[in-house]
Amino acid sequence: MVDAIRLRDDDVHEEPAVSLDSFLDQANATAVRIEAGEDARQLLPFLDRLSLIEIDFPVFGDGRGYSAAQILRESGYTGELRASGDVLLDQLAYMRRCGFDAFAPDSPINFELMQQAFSRYDHVYQATSDQRGPIWRLRHG
């Protein structure tokens, strides 16, 4: 495990993330980690008290975490959303578009190439939880 990359300005959340099961058992935990097959919607009643949600990618081709992230952001979650596991350079931009703002990759990621990946596309075709305006909005104001 290498240092997490954070795209947020707030302080790093110190409390370690617990599993979904133990989170649901505890009245005051503020950080949780969900596995690829777990239902992010179970967290919806607790979003106000959560500061960190970590979503695991067991292999980069398992795309369930993208939907989990979108669901959390669509429901108003504003805390840190961290992608962990098999998180690779070429998926970061899509992760960010789905609302991830921190990455804890298994192997280090070149910071410069990451910045390049984020700024590569000037425009996007879809509305997602990153709030970038899609091309159709530019066309029609």
């Binding site: 998926q91 899509y94 789905c98 996007v124 159709w136």
Partner: peptide, 14 residues
Amino acid sequence: RQWSSFHPEFSYLP
């Protein structure tokens, strides 16, 4: 076509 191109949520489907 436009909606599905570079769709960030649906590029690593089953």
